[in-house]
């Protein structure tokens, strides 16, 4: 079966499409890691929030993609509030304290979603629902849309960081911390911006994914491990690296499913991460140095 070129192509395409979304989640996590130096376990919860925004849209009779703009606006405000009230205090604390706090946030967010929507599985069908056939190759349309949108947002992030004034400010704060304030960069506002943008982008990733999957509150944990892995492979703090890391994880997963079995995919993805940690801990784009 593996000698069938259509099958192989299909597997690789599936891996690529999945990887694209992982890439976006990894990008936002790497920004938070690199800029706020925050080990954020709650990152998975942002994905789940996005998924349920889509579910909400469906229950109100709208196509889930329509939730993107309103969710982005509302969530920006809420994330900014979250930053100012809580996150700002946490980032100066040691890693382990951050871990406990973000786990608490993850738990509370998931629980809140359970309180509203219970644990019943939901679907968020959209006009893009369905599959596309390119010859003998099957491609899921929502996944394709999610991939394209994620790629767009991911590159948008990269461009923003590279070329805009605020992007520069974010990078300055990431690399030079307190010193950035010496050149009149408003530290707190910059950090808040980085946090809010990352959070919103992650939520949007969730909305994009919703039509392609069945939504339950336990989604948070699935993407957490993958995001960590992709960030490590792509170098902590490096946006393009995170995108590449996400793609690599997606392809590894797809190949494992085809060659070994779906039930082993976690083990192989983590084995890949472990190998990377040992062979090239600084990631694909890093310089060999202490973290």
């Amino acid at each position: 079966m593996l000698t069938d070129p259509a099958y192989l192509t299909e597997i690789l395409i599936n891996g690529l499409l999945a990887g694209g979304v992982y890439a976006l989640i990894a990008v936002t996590m790497t920004v938070v890691f690199g800029v706020l130096k925050l080990f954020n376990f709650a990152h998975g919860a942002f994905v789940t929030v996005g998924l349920y925004c889509a579910v909400l849209a469906t229950s109100l009779g709208y196509d889930p993609y329509l939730a993107i703009v309103p969710a982005a606006l509302v969530m920006s405000a809420m994330l900014w509030l979250l930053y100012v009230l809580l996150i700002d205090r946490i980032i100066s604390r040691p890693t382990l304290t951050q871990v406990i706090f973000t786990i608490g946030l993850l738990t509370a967010a998931d629980a809140l979603i359970e309180m509203i929507w219970r644990t019943d599985p939901r679907v968020a069908p959209s006009i893009t629902s369905g599959a596309l056939f390119i010859g003998d190759i099957l491609v899921s349309k929502p996944r394709l849309v999610a991939f394209l949108a994620a790629a767009l947002i991911g590159f948008g992030f990269w461009a923003f960081l590279k070329w805009s004034w605020w992007g520069l400010a974010i990078r300055a704060v990431a690399q030079h911390g307190q010193a950035a304030q010496l050149i009149a960069i408003p530290r707190r506002a910059t950090l808040a911006l980085a946090f809010v943008l990352s959070g919103v982008a992650t939520i949007v990733a969730g909305i994009l994914m919703a039509p392609a999957i069945t939504v339950t509150p336990s989604a948070s944990y699935v993407y957490l491990g993958i995001a960590f892995g992709a960030v490590v492979i792509g170098t902590k703090g490096n946006v393009l690296g995170a995108m590449l890391g996400g793609i690599i994880v997606g392809l590894t997963e797809a190949l494992t499913i085809a060659l070994v079995g779906d039930e082993w995919k976690d083990a192989f993805v983590f084995a890949l991460v472990l190998v990377f940690l040992l062979v090239r801990p600084e990631g694909l784009f890093g310089r060999p140095a202490n973290v």
């Binding site: 946490i90 706090f101 608490g104 946030l105 993850l106 509370a108 629980a111």
Partner: peptide, 10 residues
Amino acid sequence: YGCALMVFPL
């Protein structure tokens, strides 16, 4: 429980 976990480290 999640809130308790958030509050304690702070």
